[in-house]
Design a binder for these strands. Structure first.
Lengths: 202, 202
DNA sequence: ACCTTACCTGTCGAGTTCGACATGTCAAAG
DNA sequence: CTTTGACATGTCGAACTCGACAGGTAAGGT
């Protein structure tokens, strides 16, 4: 139940409408938690019901601005401080990257290049955000978080560039790809190896 | 629908039982995708139903070893290559880290230290894995992925150490925490600021 | 005046996830 | 011989997620 705490956290930063929260999830929180508006609006209603947030104003176009209550702040702190490790992530791009060694070089390269474009774009966004935070003498508190995002994007970008370089170089004959592009033809090895018993490795 | 492809991917690396897959999800895939056995077993059944995997052997304790079929390989490749960006992640620890600026220094520090211990532990695991891969002259293909994991853990660890150092140093009087520890007392500001209209920042 | 483009809030159903429950096997230690 | 602990597979219900559907509002351009 983290969506609840993500919303509380954003409202602790500043009061917002559901629409603004949706945008913040897509911008600042994109790298650690995703939620669509169809989750956010019902969640706000539930939170208001539980008195963890409250409507503190009405704006144009029927919009409601929510603010966190003291009970909400207490609950948020409790969650932040008492949290167990729970290091389980969900990251489709990461999964894809993990599986690339199964592909032959051309396919692999295509994936790396697509991801690199993506990472570079994200890096631009983050650097803009950093500049923006510096210029407006605003609260600053979240500057370190942006910095972390930039550093991680940097290492990911470097890694991707290395991998791309590696596909152009050596055609390692040892390393046989498991999944061939449909046309590649030679489908020779026995299709189903027997394996009655099995011991662990890794 | 990524669980399906995560399972296919692992079976493309080597045939495994459901139990082994569960362990691999917890070990190697922990950083990019999590799944529990209560998802994995039903998913294997569905995949077998669709002829994307097949039972290729029976082991001790009623265990079934699954292998990927050619249709499974084709489907896996299709997914890997045709994937859209989809950079939406889900990472509870990341979310927590993102929200730490809301806390006062003592709480913040506690979170950083807990996370640092966690990251250091993960780093050890990854370094062991790297050594293991080098020693056993095994397929090697996944060495780069391990390397990436190590690099990211490194920057995260460095960042956390910096943040911890920062909490001991300057007690910045500008930066007022939003969420105080229950005892801290001084709860003075007006509880609900009015906010009828609202313009965007960020 | 009309149109387009954000802005803004909501619901619904199908599919996904996860903790808890349930069951049984085998090896080694005591 | 009995107990402990790892091995191994499965189901179920409650909660969560997400794309699609739906509808209303205000500003700016032509």
């Amino acid at each position: 139940m983290s969506l609840r705490h993500a919303v509380l956290g954003l409202l602790a930063r500043r009061p917002s409408t559901g629409y603004e929260l949706t945008q913040t999830f897509d911008r600042s929180l994109r790298a650690s938690w995703h939620a669509s508006h169809s989750q956010i609006y019902p969640e706000l209603a539930k939170l208001a019901e539980a008195d963890l947030v409250e409507v503190i104003g009405h704006g144009a176009r029927r919009s409601k601005t929510y603010g966190i209550t003291q009970a909400g702040r207490d609950e948020l702190r409790r969650w932040l401080v008492e949290g167990r490790p729970d290091r389980s992530k969900r990251d489709e791009s990461g999964l894809r990257l993990f599986l690339t060694p199964l592909l032959d070089p051309a396919d692999r390269r295509a994936i790396f290049e697509r991801d690199l474009a993506d990472v570079d774009h994200e890096l631009d966004t983050l650097k803009d955000l950093r500049t923006e935070l510096q210029d407006t003498g605003s609260p600053q508190a979240f500057a370190s978080q942006v910095e972390l995002g930039i550093r991680i994007s940097d290492v990911l970008g470097d890694w991707l560039r290395e991998q791309i370089a590696a596909t152009t170089e050596t055609h390692d004959p040892e390393r046989q790809s498991q999944i061939h592009t449909p046309d590649a033809g030679h489908r020779s090895r026995s299709p189903a190896r027997k394996r009655a018993d099995h011991k662990d490795e890794q």
